[in-house]
Design a protein around this nucleic acid. Structure first.
Lengths: 215, 215
DNA sequence: ACGATAGATTGATAAATATCAAGACGACGC
DNA sequence: GCGTCGTCTTGATATTTATCAATCTATCGT
């Protein structure tokens, strides 16, 4: 994008550091800022029906919540830090103005939004086509790949959050890990060893159209 | 958008009429066309794990699949006509070129994409925060409003598809209708009468952040 | 070292949902 | 009118998932 437009955006933005478990946005509130996770991790969640569920984890350099900002609408999800995190916040007004002014910026935002959309669709397929155990198995395999295929995976958050992300209760997550033991999944706190990758893969049946985030 | 750009798009587009149950796109295929439903109804679905699930119904004048076209990526879902439908198909190459050339067009696409994104998020919340019966109750209430609040709702598709859309089996949908009988839901084929709206609403607990599609 | 606490696990049970197998109903063609 | 077909419904059962209660474990501050 044009240097001057970039400068204007940066000038209007706030960069803040937050401790863990700080709620940054609340569903229903107007979308005042586009948030960009620069460091750490933010959990997007929603409440309703006496329940709470996690919809997404955002890590550097991911944004939230772009769609609400572009539509000038209310947030559909709440967000809180999982760990100590640095977040860049750009006033949504500035985002929209720059969007109209700078084609390259607009193009970039669209690419981001389209990727986000596809991520959510994949997650929807994940939820509707797989059981809890299968979702866990596929997540382990994906993390394994992302973390360098060393045979060990470290979980990105505590197990309660992980359970909500996978669409199950914490108790169920424990049992799902138990179910995966015969497939070489050895749990040690947040560190998981995968000793029988073929068997686990056979169970998980990963598909590029769900599990490959780059597609 | 500029008339000349519009003319170019239209010139490149195909308008076709399809009978019911014709598959228009297949997940995994490259996104050759942006599709716009002009008349009728298209069901977007996905397969995997020996199962199939419906993700969305698209009615006039909705588009699919915008994100894949903009990213020049593969379709994540398959699409088939539910009833006899007319569909406008614009080659994705033309969409992308025009997107770069015409700011107004770009802005319209972004608005559409952002709306689609929010629709999917709402559906994700619907799935993860509600039981099957609650999802059905809320759907009935939403359709009731959309169809003019006459006390009668006509289902937008056959019950098998409806069940998949709600994330349940056809058998379960039948039973869910049975569960809703004490709440004034009288089923007569695809025509449903709602005789106790308050009670149904109490059960459904609709939320604007899930059930209002215009937000 | 000591309890206090939050997170995680386990067991028992209940609720939600899926599966399998019939049976009912309605639309359609002849 | 009468099969025929596909859809929908119903019943019986199994699987999956949630809930509730209790226990365990690790961490932390004092």
């Amino acid at each position: 994008m044009a240097d001057e437009n970039f400068a204007l955006l940066v000038q209007a933005a706030y960069l803040q550091t937050f401790p863990p478990q700080v709620q940054l946005i609340t569903e229903g509130d107007p979308a005042d800022f586009l948030h960009i996770v620069v460091e750490g991790c933010v959990e997007l969640f929603a409440e309703g029906n006496q329940r709470e569920t996690t919809l997404q984890l955002v890590r550097p350099y991911g944004t939230f919540i772009l769609a609400a900002v572009l539509k000038d609408a209310a947030y559909l999800m709440s967000g809180r830090t999982v760990e100590r995190s640095r977040v860049l916040m750009i006033p949504s007004q500035n985002v929209r103005v720059t969007f109209d002014r700078d084609v390259a910026f607009a193009r970039a935002l669209v690419a981001e939004l389209a990727s986000d959309f596809r991520t959510v669709i994949k997650e929807q397929k994940n939820q509707k086509l797989r059981t809890g155990v299968e979702r866990l198995a596929n997540l382990l395999l994906r993390l394994h790949g992302e973390q360098g295929s060393t045979g060990t995976v470290s979980l990105p958050c505590d197990k309660r959050t992980l359970a909500a992300l996978l669409g199950m209760t914490p108790e169920n997550l424990s049992r799902a890990f138990g179910t995966l033991k015969p497939y070489g999944v050895v749990v040690n706190g947040g560190e998981i060893r995968l000793t029988m990758l073929e068997d686990l893969t056979t169970l998980a049946k990963p598909t590029r159209l769900i599990d490959d985030l780059n597609i």
